[in-house]
Design a protein around this nucleic acid. Structure first.
Lengths: 335, 335
DNA sequence: ACAAAAAATTGGAACGTTCCATAAACTGAA
DNA sequence: TTCAGTTTATGGAACGTTCCAATTTTTTGT
């Protein structure tokens, strides 16, 4: 394991100075084609590999992006993380990913550690935390940082926020169920106090109020388990809702399986719309109608916005919401 | 955004030399308690943050681990990645994650890029690739590298391999179905030529042959879609299998929803066992019997093994297989 | 063929750490 | 008080790049 060759070895081997090699590395226009070729040949000949730490020391960008995710196991976030990471990779950036599991302490530590590693920018889907010291630290560090999917820090002028148009989605879903003639429409899932819940419920509230219909909430964790439990409970109720909007597809899928146990078939006995349109929703039975968020495109767009900030210096707008659409499938049709 | 303070600023502020500050940083025993306290105070006072690039230049470990995953969107791998990342984080290591989407070219690029970034070690769940140049490069780099879940490079003395005991799992599942009295047991999913498939099918082959039963294969991509399609096809067959072992839970879940469409209820009309025991399997209806692999513990163990290699220098054994167990649920019982 | 301009190349200082060899400051025993 | 021994602190060189200012080479116009 004899030391990695350096720029100097390359220079020696190609018969040029280290400065020239450096120029080649940053493919400067100032080096003659023939020289460049010679240098490049030397590099592969001796198996040179670039040392980013050394470059970073002199101020070059690290080409490292920090991605901090509150719940990486949730397929919605997984999809987002995978998509953003792959976009960065295509542009030559590596991504340091950390899952915080909704834990502010973990979040604070991983952010600190990423700063030490010299990440060039941050994308954070933050944990709801009482104190914002993590963000204060970020501000001081001066590292470009985007909040995505959850706006936790108010200072969107410093930490631009990008998300999806959940209000519109919720409006679409409610309108759809109303048009199908549903009388009692329930909203299932989502923790009551959370901003995301507020957003995903707002269109529902708006239209239900406009129609003078009763709002029916079943608030709770946006998980399969919760969905399943609510479905079982609902099956036993005397005046059961005839339409359900779920906080997320995970909840909806949980409900579908809960209903299956009690012989209720969404689409026939009750109408259901999910939220997110994860892959599984088009595969399950019955196929789940959902609000498509197209996370993977959202990931690409966010990545691109961040790169523009980093490379061209144009900061993303303070708040950006990408559009969503309603996908109608079996769960909200007469079968 | 005035330059980050350096070790020198801390020294000045605490009235000691930079060397002393460096010693404090590596908490050396050679510095007096009072001095250490003073230095530490100075650090928080001026908001010092450690510069790992600079340290790395002098040979210090980067504290960065490269994690390369062939399919990050598959919940099995997501769980693994999340678990291993969080274990590293607890030990003060950051994790650079890349999804290769089964693409050898992407795999090669991300590995190269991680080497540039100076990762201290690699954990790779590799893509099946015709050429092993990526591994050759790794070997030359001398960076400790573990293969997990898929053994692609034969040189396990160089790249220790850790996985789960799939053969045992497949034996457990088959034995279970045989004991339930199944006569025609099919194996569904898994690409025919793949080593993983061979492993997951081996116990099935062994026991079926021992019993003199016919082997029935439905090979294909280990996805929900494939499972659903096979279930539909199976529903139309005249001599339908009465027992099914799936390559993965994803396939099994796909089959469950495919069967649901044709009014076949696993556990009543057919018996089914999945493989992996992802979270959803205990939540779906009917609950899916499965071979529990406990990926998240596997992740922790692998992380720990790698850290021991890195820090104590003891290389993991060339091949390690962690045990699996059969979890019996509704899908393989009379309801 | 010559100067001037343009293009291509170069040496050296700097970046923020670590580590070695050395120095300074303390101990306690003679 | 002195000296050896021990504990603690220090200056300086090194790590592999980038970038500036300076230099050399090539091109252009006359």
């Amino acid at each position: 394991m004899n030391k990695r060759p350096t720029i100097l070895d390359v220079a020696r081997h190609a018969g040029v100075s280290k400065s020239t090699v450096s120029l080649v590395l940053q493919n400067s226009a100032a080096v003659k084609a023939s020289t460049r070729a010679a240098v490049e040949k030397a590099m592969v000949d001796i198996g040179y590999v670039y040392n980013r730490s050394a470059a970073g020391l002199r101020g070059a960008s690290s080409g490292l992006i920090g991605l901090v995710i509150n719940d990486l196991r949730n397929p919605f976030f997984t999809e987002f993380a995978a998509s953003i990471q792959m976009t960065f990779a295509r542009k030559g950036f590596s991504t340091v990913i950390a899952n915080t599991d909704e834990n502010p302490d973990i979040q604070a530590t991983v952010i600190a550690s990423m700063i030490e590693h010299g990440v060039s920018a941050f994308v954070i889907s933050p944990t709801y935390a009482p104190d914002l010291s993590a963000f204060d630290r970020l501000e001081k560090s001066g590292i470009p940082t985007m909040q995505v999917l959850r706006q936790v820090d108010e200072r969107t002028d410093i930490f631009p926020f990008a998300s999806l148009d959940y209000m519109a989605g919720s409006r679409l879903a409610t309108k759809h169920l109303l048009e199908l003639g549903c009388k009692r429409i329930a909203f299932v899932g989502g923790l009551e106090d959370r901003p995301v819940t507020l957003e995903r419920v707002s269109g529902y509230n708006e239209l239900m109020d406009a129609e003078g219909r009763e709002r029916i909430y079943y608030h709770g964790r946006p998980s399969r388990t919760f969905g399943r439990d609510i479905a079982r409970r609902m099956a036993r109720e005397d005046t059961r809702p005839d339409g359900v909007i779920c906080f997320s597809d995970l909840v909806a899928l949980g409900m579908i399986s809960g209903f299956a146990e009690t012989d209720i078939l969404p689409g026939k006995d009750i109408r259901m719309v999910g939220f997110d349109d994860i892959e599984e929703s088009s595969l399950c039975f019955p196929r789940l109608s959902s609000i498509r968020c197209d996370v993977s495109r959202f990931g690409e767009n966010s990545a691109q916005a961040l790169l523009n900030w980093l490379e061209q210096g144009d900061k993303p707008e303070a708040t950006k919401r990408y559009p969503v659409e309603l996908i109608v499938r079996q769960s909200s049709m007469r079968l």
